[in-house]
């Protein structure tokens, strides 16, 4: 889980879930606590789904905005 997904690709990661920003991957100081929690849960759930998904190549698991 990272923001700079191109670096994840370059170093060879196979399952990539994008995060919000470099200094706060799963937070957003501009948003309310509730919105941040929702975003964090959603992206971690995507990561858990990614772990259960068979992939044939480097795969980016898209997230909702």
């Amino acid at each position: 889980m990272c923001n700079l997904v191109n670096i994840a690709r370059t170093v060879g990661s196979n399952r990539i879930v994008p995060t919000f920003a470099v200094p706060y991957p799963l937070g957003n100081p501009q948003a309310s606590a509730e919105e941040q929690w929702k975003m964090r849960m959603h992206r971690v759930e995507r990561a858990v789904q990614a772990l259960q998904t068979d992939v044939q190549e480097q795969t980016l698991f898209a997230v909702e905005r």
């Binding site: 706060y24 991957p25 799963l26 937070g27 941040q36 929690w37 964090r40 992206r43 971690v44």
Partner: peptide, 10 residues
């Protein structure tokens, strides 16, 4: 909130 980096709460 360190959980924004390591999502222990989630």
């Amino acid at each position: 909130n360190p959980n924004v980096v390591v999502p222990l709460d989630a």
